[in-house]
């Protein structure tokens, strides 16, 4: 077994419940590598909701809270307010974060509270069998949209930018090193950090969105159909926008503001 994962995983809980080729394991490695590089193993707490991606921290041998559907951010805000010295890392999925937990996401962004959210976006409700999620692209045939999805998808990263999050990045599972660096930067950043990871789901979205079940093919598709965003560049159309989309260190953080108010 991999030496780094061996030190951080609960070995009695293995093997993981992820399907072969699932992107969640790649996000898990990136998070472990970031925590290991920063040396904050005893200062970090992980929170997750319900869904495939919310199983990522459950295998970690750290302080972990597995909470109700969509309420990961609500629990994380409570944890951060009770124990401000802990770095809180939230793992959530597109259905968990944008659909049922959308309200909590908007309010956590508005408060600019010091959390790091890793949203694993596989464009579908994978655990329950492939239903349409808020991030499903237009025209895709899923179990609950048999005639093709006629709604516009929610762009999570752009949503949190306009709600006032101060560190926003988007990567795919084909960019593992950049993803690790973004998680490190998000943990270091004082304020609400949101990292969206476009991930493959070979079992559900592989069939309905990409038409192929091969995870390596989908990752190659991500690599070829993405570009790294820089300010003022000509943006190509119909490609995945990757990169650090916003980094603002000047906004006051929620706990600092609260302490200044009640001093």
């Amino acid at each position: 077994m991999n030496r780094l994962k061996e030190r951080y995983l609960r070995l009695d809980a293995l093997p993981t419940l992820f399907c072969p080729g699932c992107g969640n394991g790649i996000v898990q490695y990136a998070a472990i590598a970031a925590i290991d590089k920063m040396g904050i193993r005893n200062d970090i707490a992980c929170v997750s909701g319900i869904g495939c991606s919310s199983w990522i921290p459950c295998y970690l041998n750290l302080d972990v809270m597995h909470t109700t559907h969509g309420r990961a951010l609500a629990f994380a805000q409570g944890l951060k307010l009770a124990r401000p010295e802990k770095q809180v890392l939230v793992f959530t999925g597109d259905g968990d974060c944008l659909a049922i937990g959308g309200n909590h996401l908007l309010h956590a962004c508005k408060r600019n509270i010091d959390l790091t959210v890793v949203m694993v976006n596989n464009h579908i409700y994978a655990m329950t069998g492939g239903q349409k999620s808020p991030a499903t692209p237009k025209g895709v045939i899923t179990k609950t949209s048999p005639g093709g999805n006629y709604e516009e998808p929610i762009d999570g990263a752009q949503l949190v930018i306009c709600m006032g999050a101060t560190y926003v990045a988007r990567w795919t599972t084909a960019h593992p090193v950049q993803l690790q660096k973004s998680i490190e930067a998000g943990i270091k950043h004082k304020g609400f950090s949101f990292i969206e990871v476009i991930s493959q789901c070979p079992t559900q979205s592989g069939v309905s969105i990409y038409g192929v079940k091969d995870p390596a093919y989908i990752m190659k598709f991500f690599k070829e159909n993405s570009y790294i965003y820089k300010e003022g560049m000509d943006e190509p159309k119909n490609k995945i926008q990757c990169g650090v989309l916003k980094h603002d260190n000047d906004q006051p953080e929620y706990i600092d503001r609260m302490e200044a108010r009640f001093k």
């Binding site: 077994m1 991999n2 780094l4 993981t16 992820f18 080729g21 699932c22 790649i26 593992p176 990752m219």
Partner: peptide, 15 residues
């Protein structure tokens, strides 16, 4: 070490 990073189950170890 790209295989190590991209293995979803941590099966590969390169030394």
């Amino acid at each position: 070490k790209l295989c190590e990073r991209l293995c979803p189950d941590g099966a590969i170890n390169v030394e």
